[in-house]
């Protein structure tokens, strides 16, 4: 198995790990971190698979998409963290209400 596919599988692993954490943890900070780990998995997958050109130069289009995606992920994370701070300021806890518990 070539190196590209090994890195791509690590990307799949990161994505699934993030998804697991997203489902299991109720605290919103952990959910935001989990979403970031999932996004990192997707970026790694894209960058790794872009190397399959068979030349020295990897495909530049996925690379450009990833670099755009990183900046968007950072800004979305900042917005999510602000929402979380506002929620915990309003309700006193950084978790979404669980309907089954009420």
């Amino acid at each position: 198995m070539s190196a590209e596919f090994q890195y791509a599988l690590v990307g799949v692993g990161l994505f699934s790990l993030g998804l697991y954490a997203l489902i299991v943890h109720a605290h919103l900070l952990r959910k935001i971190l989990a979403l970031n780990v999932m996004g990192t998995g997707v970026f790694l997958l894209l960058v790794a698979l872009a190397r399959r050109t068979g030349e020295a130069q990897p495909d530049s289009v996925p690379h450009a998409m990833v670099i755009t995606g990183i900046v968007v992920a950072v800004s979305a994370t900042a917005l999510a963290l602000t929402l979380m701070l506002k929620l915990s300021g309003a309700t006193g806890r950084a978790e979404l209400p669980d309907e089954e518990q009420e």
């Binding site: 198995m1 596919f5 698979l49 399959r52 050109t53 495909d59």
Partner: peptide
């Protein structure tokens, strides 16, 4: 799905 992709793909390069 990842492993079933072709080993070489020129893409848009």
């Amino acid at each position: 799905a990842v492993l079933s992709l072709p080993d070489q793909a020129a893409g848009l390069q």
